[in-house]
Design a protein around this nucleic acid. Structure first.
Lengths: 132, 132
DNA sequence: AAGCTACCTTACGTTTACGTCAATCAAAAA
DNA sequence: TTTTTGATTGACGTAAACGTAAGGTAGCTT
């Protein structure tokens, strides 16, 4: 087994983040690269976690919340009470995401309404040439 | 016409925000309450805008972005080139919202998968009593 | 040995969106 | 009239998520 690890530079290139970001995530205990002397070696596990981190960020979860989710995603299958607890966290996040999506859908519909209105106005009076 | 205006306190109670927030929004030119002497009087228009502001915030738009949107929602129907320009902004926001929603949907599906897994585990080994 | 490259730590800077005093003022209540 | 209530304007503080020097090290290559 080559164990397949990545340097910080490789990780940055792969995921489009800066070294600073990865060190920050380590400091925040979202990642836990192993050390070879001073240098960090990022494992497959770190890669998987980073993917989740970046995705989580895209819909507005804080890093702390993401940490909770990551912990959830790595439940030790024997610790049932742990699972039950993390399921609670999951439910909250799930509910929040659902309601966010619903609001987002409403807002999208809203915006589409306004855009339709705008189009109508522009179509009605094609005074100036407007390139698409 | 009573003109129906609200004091800052009434607004806060109504929308669950602090005075500081409303003053900040005014400073940022998101709201424009009229002044009676020193005091701010918030109009229906301010209420409508505040609703949009709060909604915008919930899905991660910055106040600056929200300002753009608010401006869009108040297009002067005679300025056609203005409309065309704001339509551009609208399209960008629309696209962003769509992609956000799609990602959110994916994440929701993901999380539901993990939750189902958790449930399965808990169901398989009902060792400890877990109150819902 | 010199230089380059990629990495490291420490630590202060930055932006967003307000929170939190502090001092002041005016109208309403006691 | 004094007190309370609610408002005002500064102005500094804060948390999140990094950015950005500044200076140090370790390993190659020439």
């Amino acid at each position: 087994m080559t164990a397949m690890t990545f340097t910080i530079g490789e990780m940055c290139a792969e995921f489009g983040v800066t070294p600073r970001t990865l060190r920050f995530y380590e400091y925040k205990e979202l990642l836990a690269p192993i050390r070879e002397g001073q240098k960090r070696l990022f494992t497959q596990r770190d890669c998987a976690r980073l993917k989740l981190i970046l995705r989580g960020k895209r819909f507005g979860f804080t890093l702390d919340e993401i940490k909770d989710l990551l912990d959830l995603y790595e439940v030790d299958p024997t610790m049932l009470t742990q699972i039950a607890a993390t399921m609670e966290v999951a439910r909250r996040h799930h509910a929040e995401m659902i309601s966010r999506r619903d609001e987002l859908n409403a807002a999208i519909a809203d915006l589409e309404g306004y855009m339709a209105e705008g189009k109508r106005i522009l179509a009605a009076r094609p005074k100036t040439e407007a390139a698409a």
